[in-house]
Write a protein that binds this DNA or RNA. Structure first.
Lengths: 253, 253
DNA sequence: CCAAAAGTGTTGTAGATACACCCATGC
DNA sequence: GCATGGGTGTATCTACAACACTTTTGG
């Protein structure tokens, strides 16, 4: 325990020296598994309180690089699709006293800085490729389904809501391919779109529109081991999909 | 001149004390006049170099409030519609040596900070309501047409390009009413949409769609003093327009 | 053989496109 | 009266929504 106190103190001292004050990054890592959108959360050591992964920006590091570094440490992924979506810059973002109490850290974080401006990023990652890893301050890193999130620390419930709202609005411009494995079935892709948009889509019309857009290649294989009729496996066409994303030309009104 | 040197030094000293380091705000103020989109630019004292209006965030001030304060000083407007659109956070955003030389300031800005992360905001304002005012470091504040921008200081040409791209993409969700006077004609509104979207729209279909959306009230007056047929004057329906903006339901595919 | 999901056709309708035409006004 | 832009009507076509039906597979 004394060791822990010492390393936490050391961590914040080091961050204070090499990182930019008043500024932090919070990352909403979106994954997709069993028909649900998931986000990666961390549980703070010795508590049952959860928060988003985040961190600070080194003085000579680009903001995007900082977000990549933070998520690499949390997920083990080398390549990560990231999108900045909002600046959370209110002078008072949450009840600080209450938060410090819930975290119960040995160091007084209120001295770290009076307020923090947070740059919100969301990531789209392939659920199965992630190996969640907690950091120094946390002892668990797990996927949570969007529908049953706990009451998070800081203003992180709001950050997730804003991230989802942004993802929804900009869906035609976002490479959702990152949320799926190399090959996947058409119903899986439809489920993904339905979950993000929050409303059902007509299967027939979805098939037609997706096929007309040309973003998919149908493989000769079918998904085995499932009950009922085995669906074809598709992959994104790397010669077509990026262009469709850039133009934002695949949308579901 | 000695007075100027002194006040500039004082300005930066004060900012260094009361503002957040490494962080700044840059504002792209969009106006619409004579069928063209304009942006507000400042000319640095004793030079012919232009840049966007910008400033710093006070330690206990919300980021949005800082942007409002900065623009209030530059435009004289009390109410300003603002939208954050991007974080410019590369470790090296522009050639610093070249820039300091072009600005030719008495103080060495390179000591102010090694790098700056800039929060990009754009504003939609009513051209005629703005009284452009330069600040301490500049001796002119003027509207420039988007088509013939000069080579700006810092990475401000890129910032404007990104702002416009964001405005374009999110047009259905943005209250363009702020870009127009209280009353305006249908062709003027069409010109605005065409200019932002960068492509012509069919007048008949534009009329039909706008009228069907219900966002406009037609007044009994017509614009006088114009050559040719005098067009009706419209105003935005405050009971309908905000809802249409929130839903993003008025778009031109 | 039955239940459940995958995959394909068809049709009516709403909205977009592409026109054509008349109206009002200044010169 | 003529050039120019404002304002309205309509035919055509495309794209979407809403269906029904067949196919495949595990139990």
């Amino acid at each position: 325990m004394k060791d822990f106190n010492h390393s936490v103190t050391h961590y914040f001292k080091q961050e204070a020296e090499q990182s930019i004050h008043y500024l932090s990054i919070d990352c909403v890592v979106f994954g997709f598994h069993e028909g649900r959108i998931r986000v990666l959360l961390l549980r703070w050591k010795g508590t049952s309180e959860w928060s988003l992964p985040g961190g600070f920006i080194r003085k000579a590091e680009s903001v995007d690089a900082a977000a990549v570094r933070i998520l690499r440490e949390r997920t083990g992924l080398q390549q990560i699709f990231l999108q900045q979506f909002h600046i959370f810059g209110d002078a008072v973002r949450y009840n600080q006293e209450d938060t410090w109490q819930r975290i119960g850290l040995p160091v007084d974080l209120s001295k770290w800085s009076e307020r923090t401006i947070s740059l919100g990023y969301y990531a789209l990652v392939e659920y199965a490729e992630v190996t969640p890893r907690p950091d120094l301050l946390t002892d668990a890193c797990d996927w949570w389904s969007l529908e049953d999130l706990p009451n998070l620390l800081f203003d992180h419930n709001r950050i997730i809501a804003v991230a989802l709202e942004n993802l929804r609005r900009q869906l035609p411009y976002q490479p959702v391919s990152h949320l799926l494995p190399e090959t996947f079935t058409m119903p899986e892709l439809q489920r993904l779109y339905e979950t993000i948009l929050g409303r059902p889509l007509d299967a027939r019309n979805f098939y037609k529109k997706v096929q007309a857009s040309g973003i998919l290649q149908r493989t000769d294989e079918r998904r085995k081991g499932t009950p009922y009729k085995s669906p074809y496996l598709y992959r994104f066409d790397p010669g077509v999909y990026p262009e469709v994303v850039r133009e934002g030309s695949l949308s579901f009104p």
